[in-house]
Design a protein around this nucleic acid. Structure first.
Lengths: 343, 343
DNA sequence: TCAAGGTGCTAATACGAATTATCACGCCGA
DNA sequence: TCGGCGTGATAATTCGTATTAGCACCTTGA
């Protein structure tokens, strides 16, 4: 069997070059400052041996001794390479990867976390959180108990997406859904709509409550009713209810719900946006197909991932001025699904 | 910065209960078999202390002692989170992740590999291959020299996709392109075609040679000529050549080439498949759009990733019966682009 | 009374790298 | 000739856990 070969260690390098393990370590870490000196000739010999053997420090031992290893964990509550969520998480990972690469860190996907009660759990018998220096958390909603424990035990981590306090402030890089949604409302009002509806949960994960808060606040300020439609019925029934109530513009928390609504509208012979404006509060989280480009906003996913790593490494380095809670603006999208209402 | 107060260790528990650290370890691991005995009374005392302090074993130290880290590297010759290759690599990663999860392994993305001479290299000054226990290799074509070195140095790895020997057998989980292509040829023959053409390189990476071998063998067996069209000319010129030669069915090594051919055919007023049958030998590796569902086969990408991890962990564990070279069947696709030829 | 055998636990060590205190050596000046 | 100093490297220890050899003590049987 191939795998039988022992891993190359600093001890091996030391024997090969006739120096001690300590010297190898010193060379590896470029310790050439005042307190430690290595003869250039020796250094080259060691470096050469390292290169020829392909030696790499064992991250585990390194972490045990030095308490850090320049590895960042990525923990996701949904699978990292999602089958069901289309590519929604993809841009986050692109940003995370780019940022990690720039900072010279490796990424460890904590895929070993077992699933219990339908979701992954961070804490379990053999959790490997501590294998990495710190951890980026990704997912629509994070378990509050686990978050609380992370905070309480002082694990360095950053959430992608805003999170409420969990026994303490939670470091995050989120999207400013409240402001983005308020902006969408404003655009609808500017177009002349007065009867809007919010389609979605509006509760649960912070990303939902933030959107709904932005929606409600804007309409309250305008003195208009903030109608809220749950998603527990069929698109057809929903459409009936909306038309009965005279709603002219719908804000879809979930892109896919907006698409479904547009589809049944088309089946009824209605035109979007001539007969009904539909606005999407973000990018699709599930794969959907539609010829319509929805008006709404785009989540700065890549940048969120990018900055999350930045915040995390800042935390780890103990950089004083690092802002550990950041909300990034969303980018408005001028689609084709908003038009002034009929009279 | 991190957890302020020191973590509780086995040593602490030992001092609290007046036993040795070794005893704590033994109790923790439930070692009560023949070779080791712990008095029930002592065990309870230790367990009680463990519970009251909330002690959890440090995974890092645990790994160090265990001599392996249950981390699997994933090395890709194309970028892991691809922008250009569409979603082609995505299903592989889904399978890899699922399998790793099931086996309790974490994944380390070796994305820091630098690009030299237009392609990523495994071996370089600062390669981190040995960070992981073993490695999954992904990519259309792997550098033969590097593959040879992996084999020679005894690195535990598995290739996704069949590879020729490189100074020794290469462990792989591949798709049986030869059989799948032969099957496509058979379907074309059954439909009455006698003048086929293979569109593509037919050489280079194993995935190409395997397809071409299956194509050629089938036609040889049927006593028919095995026409081969390179891809170095424009789709328009290609179409001319095919029509001149009386070809009625084209097998496209690359899905995108099939799409391009169908497009120019349509521009000429020809209909696929009425005037020309086009068969795709696999899934699109580049993003393409076409209303046609091509007849051909699907690569079992997810399963390939899944089994690759399985083979790798088998290798690492030294499981004797593990088959380290596997070819998985492709799934036939009955599309709309095959029809009996005109006469 | 003493060897034989069983019981319960500990001392010692390994794992691989990082770090600190220390040491051997050569050279120079007095 | 000896003390002092700069230089280059090493021995020893640390991190927290797992494992094994072996020790001290007790019981039993002849």
């Amino acid at each position: 069997m191939t795998g039988s070969r022992r891993r190359v260690t600093q001890q091996d390098i030391a024997r090969m070059t006739g120096v001690s393990q300590a010297t190898v370590s010193l060379v590896l870490n470029g310790r050439d400052d005042g307190s430690v000196r290595i003869a250039p000739e020796t250094r080259d010999r060691v470096l050469h041996a390292i290169r020829s053997t392909g030696y790499v420090a064992d991250p585990v031992a390194r972490r045990l001794a030095a308490r850090h290893n320049r590895i960042l964990g990525v923990f996701t509550y949904e699978p990292v390479f999602p089958a069901g969520t289309g590519d929604f998480y993809h841009p986050f990972l692109v940003g995370i990867e780019e940022s990690a690469e720039r900072l010279g860190c490796d990424l460890l996907l904590l895929t070993s976390a077992p699933v219990a009660e339908g979701r992954r759990r961070i804490f379990h018998d053999d959790n490997r959180l501590r294998l990495a220096d710190g951890c980026v958390l990704l997912g629509r909603s994070l378990d509050r108990d686990e978050l609380g424990r992370l905070v309480a035990e002082g694990h360095p981590f950053v959430s992608v997406g805003r999170r409420d306090d969990a026994g303490g402030p939670v470091p995050y890089v989120g999207a400013d859904y409240a402001a983005a949604t308020a902006d969408v409302v404003r655009r609808a009002l500017d177009a002349g709509h007065t009867r809007l509806a919010y389609l979605g949960q509006g509760a649960g994960p912070e990303s939902h409550t933030d959107r709904f808060a932005g929606y409600r606040a804007s309409l309250d300020a305008a003195g208009l009713p903030a109608r809220h439609e749950p998603t527990d019925r069929s698109p057809a029934d929903l459409l009936d209810a909306l038309l009965d109530a005279g709603v002219t513009a719908v804000l879809a928390e979930e892109y896919a719900d907006g698409v479904a609504l547009a589809t049944v509208a088309a089946e009824r012979g209605l035109t979007v946006p001539a007969d009904l404006s539909i606005l999407a509060l973000g990018d699709p989280t599930r794969p959907t197909t539609s010829d319509l480009e929805f008006t709404g906003f785009r989540i700065p996913r890549r940048d969120m991932g990018w900055q999350a790593v930045e915040v995390l490494t800042g935390l780890l380095a103990g950089v004083p001025g690092t802002v550990t809670q950041r909300l990034l603006p969303c980018q408005p999208v001028d689609g084709v699904t908003l038009r002034p209402p009929r009279h």
